[in-house]
């Protein structure tokens, strides 16, 4: 199989405890991420991107359709690093994912060091979380995922709290990780509402109102997807302004 993740005809409802009041947030979503790809999921706020992510991560149940994740392990990193960092210092935070494995200290140390250097945080392992910048915190959250050698990264708007410089810094880091993976097996699903990030994508999907309304299989098709997104935003703006 070439796919790392494939969803076919996925329906997900939220709210109302699954009763009549619950509302379909994802409607017939078809999306696949190929191995070794950085696949971007573009969509406006509230279009259902996080819902898709959480469903893939197994945090939400789906009512209908098929969801196949061909690789493991899968790790998710969310929007706000302050909410995802668990332990008080950089080294301990990265090592947290390894608490379920009996490893010897040297091995743990080596893995933590590697994960930190993968995200350009080498040498900071003793630092307290409170002394890190926003960009460093988000890289740290990424390192916490990488230490477990995941095959699929689910990254939900991880640049939305960062300034432009850090935004592209983190994006380039992820791109380099995928391109530099020795097995070529590492893939990532990158969720965003900023179309300028699509220049780094291997492929992309456009989500609107819980549906996939456009797909780009390569960089060549990216421009038309971005234009489609712009039109959706433009239409929405006209609706909002009288």
């Amino acid at each position: 199989m070439m796919e790392a993740l494939s969803a076919r005809g996925l329906w997900v409802s939220r709210g109302g405890n699954g009763g009549a009041a619950s509302k379909a947030v994802l409607k017939n979503v078809n999306l696949s991420v190929r191995r070794g790809h950085l696949h971007m999921l573009l969509g406006r706020n509230g279009s259902g991107k996080s819902t898709f992510m959480e469903t893939v991560a197994g945090l939400l149940p789906y009512q209908n359709g098929e969801l196949e994740i061909e690789v493991s392990p899968t790790r998710m990193v969310s929007q706000n690093p302050d909410h995802s960092i668990i332990l008080p210092t950089v080294g301990a935070e990265v090592a947290f994912g390894l608490w379920d494995q009996a490893l010897d200290p040297d091995d743990v140390r080596e893995r933590v060091r590697r994960a930190l250097s993968q995200v350009n945080l080498g040498g900071l392992s003793e630092k307290a979380i409170g002394t890190l910048s926003g960009g460093q915190k988000q890289r740290l959250a990424l390192a916490g995922a990488l230490v477990e050698s995941p095959k699929l990264l689910l990254l939900d708007e991880i640049t939305s709290f960062l300034d432009a410089e850090n935004q592209f810094g983190v994006l380039r880091t992820v791109k380099a990780l995928i391109d530099g993976d020795p097995t070529g097996d590492l893939s990532a699903l990158w969720v965003t509402h900023r179309s300028e990030e699509l220049q780094y994508a291997s492929s992309a999907s456009l989500m609107e109102n819980g549906e996939i309304v456009g797909v780009a299989q390569s960089q060549a098709e990216m421009d038309s997807l971005v234009r489609q997104f712009e039109e959706i935003c433009e239409g929405q703006r006209r609706l909002m302004t009288p």
Partner: peptide
């Protein structure tokens, strides 16, 4: 986020409290 990273009290029985002293290289 602890759940996302695989936490459950039974399997997380190896607290790795190692000090990762590194020699610079930022």
């Amino acid at each position: 986020s602890m759940m996302v990273r695989g936490y459950n009290s039974k399997s997380f029985s190896h607290p790795h409290l190692v000090d990762v002293k590194e020699d610079g290289g930022n």
